Simulated assay, not measured.
Amino acid sequence: MDELSTLQTILIAIVEGLTEFLPVSSTGHMIITQSLLGIESTEFVKAFTVIIQFGAILSVVCLYWKRFFHLNSCKIFDSEAVKGLSGSKKGLTYLKRFLYKYDFYWKLLVAFIPAAFFGLLFSDIIDDLLESVTVVATMLVLGGVFMIFSDKIFKNQSQSTEMTDRKAFKIGIYQCIAMIPGVSRSMATIMGGMAQKLSRKHAAEFSFFLAVPTMFAATCYKILKLYLSGGTQVLSDNLFTLILGNVVAFIVALLAIKFFISFITKYGFKAFGYYRIIVGVAILAMILMGHNLEIA
């Protein structure tokens, strides 16, 4: 028997698709949505909110497939370019081609390592925090205040498009902050990228790319935990829900990414900062007035 109705599935997936790549915390918004809809926080529901992120990351692969799979390689690495070269020079050229082709994935791996380490280390604590609407609302407000001033903070710094191993690792450290619900993985990694002197656009795009291994690993880890705890039956019983959620998240995320890149390039992050503060304050006010929004 499905633990979520079709309407609940679609609503949560829409929220995921809209917010996954925006700096407003997709996890936080799904927790708030779950609370407002009165959905019990069962093991399946917890897994569902993670697994449908897979649909969202496919939108990144779809939109950036040429860059993601490096099909736009430089002509210097074409086979014609190595004809007539001596053995040593030819070998060096092939080595450069190999390094060029796989450097993109190496940078993603370097940036992914911190989240993988701390995610495994603090898995249980993270799961507990995921049930607190108060934590989400508080972090939305704090993150919003930072975002309002972020454009000024990074305004006068020189910008670069070069991504080094050191920069990738530092962005990965920033991503770990997003393990606190309400912070936003997108916000943390974009701000991390800008702190490494990347432009808003390049920081956002690297954030999108980094989401692929990060959320894929989170999805696999959540499924593995369910499998080890004997919860595979609940996944098969709710297969339609999982498929529907991923499809909806994929379609909505496609539209959200295009909007986001265009918006931040022109206007920056201030609007998202104000939005976070409004939502966070509204949730905290409801809690203070006695409304029980905590997830059961």
Rank of each mutant, 00 (worst) to 15 (best):
E162I: 15
G192H: 04
T134N: 13
F149I: 09
F208P: 00
A211M: 07
F208L: 14
S184G: 03
L210Y: 08
F216A: 12
R166A: 14
M191F: 03
L198Y: 04
D165M: 14
A218P: 06
V183P: 02
V141F: 08
Q159M: 10
I148Q: 04
A204I: 01
I153R: 05
V135E: 03
V212P: 14
S207N: 04
R166M: 13
S184I: 00
A188C: 02
F146N: 01
K167A: 10
S207I: 06
T219W: 13
G144A: 09
M163H: 06
K167C: 05
G172V: 02
A195H: 13
M191D: 00
F216Y: 11
K152H: 10
T214K: 07
A188T: 08
G182E: 05
A204H: 03
A218R: 03
V136D: 01
D151K: 05
G192F: 01
T164M: 14
T161M: 04
A178S: 13
T138M: 14
K197H: 14
F169K: 02
M163S: 09
F169T: 13
L140D: 00
L210M: 12
G143Q: 01
K170H: 12
Q159V: 14
S199E: 12
L140C: 07
L142R: 01
F146L: 11
V183K: 03
S184P: 08
S150K: 01
I148S: 05
G182N: 02
V141K: 09
K197T: 11
K155W: 15
Q175S: 11
L210A: 04
G193S: 09
S184H: 00
R166T: 15
A137V: 04
Q196Y: 07
F169M: 11
A188I: 09
E205H: 03
R200N: 12
H202C: 10
G193E: 02
I171L: 05
T138C: 13
F209H: 04
C176T: 15
C220L: 14
A217D: 08
F209L: 07
C220F: 10
A217T: 13
T219Q: 10
M163D: 04
V136T: 06
A203I: 08
K155P: 04
K155Y: 11
D165E: 11
A168V: 13
S199R: 06
M179W: 15
I190M: 04
R185P: 10
S160G: 08
M179S: 08
M139Y: 11
V145P: 00
I148L: 15
R166L: 14
K170V: 15
Q157R: 12
D165N: 11
Q159N: 12
H202N: 12
G144V: 12
F154P: 02
F146R: 00
F146Q: 03
F216G: 11
P181T: 09
A204Y: 01
F216M: 13
A217S: 13
T138K: 08
Q159F: 15
G192A: 07
F206G: 02
K167H: 11
E205M: 07
V136C: 00
K155G: 08
F169A: 15
V183A: 06
G192D: 09
Q159G: 03
F146S: 02
A137G: 09
L210H: 07
A137R: 08
S132G: 08
I153L: 14
Q196F: 08
D165R: 07
